[in-house]
């Protein structure tokens, strides 16, 4: 070796460190593969048409997850509708009107706090303001809890993408005689559409697997129920109850449900990721 090459000790430290980085990545990937593998192994066996056509069974009888799947879908769609409107408007306010004002900073901090607030506390909050006064668990309460979890994600991504839109775009639109609200809706939102949709997808992925906030808001329902004013079955809570039960058929359904929900969430995440470009090192 030439005199310029690092001495042995330094090279050894370097090799050990790089080896550790390889190993760390391998561990992370192995964890992902191990989890997906057990989901498929345990879940595929129980997968059949009945899962999608029948409601959750009594112990030792046939059944599926239809009521839970429908309940989850209804609550998530309702939550995303509300959260989408509020989140997009609040994000717009932060980016277009608040700028660096004091109240803007407060709202931004509040949004960060909501973003990191444990989801089970959101469940407690909704229980206190909705379930307890109305004396009943309901799908609406579940949807509200999910919406509260989705809003901060949407606010954050909306503000971030709107801020990336060039000022010239706004000026051009206003110079053409468009009022500010139309400029925002038809020009800025349109140009930021991709990022806003990504944010919504990530929010959707986040809430569709959430269990903790539904435990004491939507609760559960053994039967198919399309009226969200009643307790509503949903996949995460059904998985939770069935997984910890001693019934074999319930446990099998729990694995099927876990597989379905994980695959759905991962698919949405991948779609969201594909629609954004990766940062490249220059």
């Amino acid at each position: 070796m030439s005199a310029a090459s690092p001495r042995f000790g330094r090279r050894a430290a370097n090799a050990a460190f790089l080896g550790f980085c390889w190993a760390a990545t391998a561990i992370a990937l192995m964890a992902l593969v191990a989890i997906l593998w057990s989901l498929v192994k345990q879940g595929v066996g129980g997968l059949n048409l009945k899962v999608f056509t029948m409601s959750t069974p009594a112990p030792d009888s046939e059944g599926g997850l239809l009521n839970a799947i429908l309940g989850s879908l209804m609550m998530c769609v309702l939550a995303m509708t509300g959260a989408g409107v509020v989140g997009a408007l609040a994000g717009t306010w932060l980016s277009e009107y608040a700028k660096d004002s004091r109240y803007g900073k407060v709202v931004r901090f509040v949004n960060d706090v909501l973003l990191s607030a444990p989801s089970i506390l959101v469940g407690l909050f909704v229980y206190e303001i909705m379930v307890a006064p109305m004396k009943g668990f309901s799908g609406y309460a579940g949807a509200l809890a999910l919406a509260l979890l989705a809003v901060p994600v949407i606010v954050r991504t909306t503000e971030d993408v709107l801020r990336l839109q060039p000022v010239a775009l706004r000026e051009a639109s206003i110079a053409l005689g468009a009022p500010v609200w139309r400029t925002t809706l038809a020009v800025i939102w349109k140009s930021a559409r991709g990022g806003m949709i990504t944010g919504a997808l990530l929010a959707f992925a986040r809430i569709s697997g959430e269990t903790a906030p539904l435990l004491f808001t939507a609760l559960n329902n053994q039967f198919l129920n399309l009226n969200l004013a009643h307790p509503t079955a949903n996949l995460p809570v059904v998985i939770f109850n069935f997984a910890l039960s001693a019934q074999d058929n319930w446990r099998r359904l729990a694995w099927v449900g876990a597989m379905l929900i994980a695959l759905a969430v991962l698919a949405v995440t991948i779609i969201a990721r594909l629609s954004t470009r990766e940062p490249q090192r220059s």
Binding site: A28, L32, T211, I239
Partner: peptide, 15 residues
């Protein structure tokens, strides 16, 4: 690695 973040916590629990 990001998918690892997307897996719902109930699935982590069962696994």
């Amino acid at each position: 690695v990001e998918l690892l973040a997307g897996i719902p916590s109930i699935v982590y629990g069962m696994w």
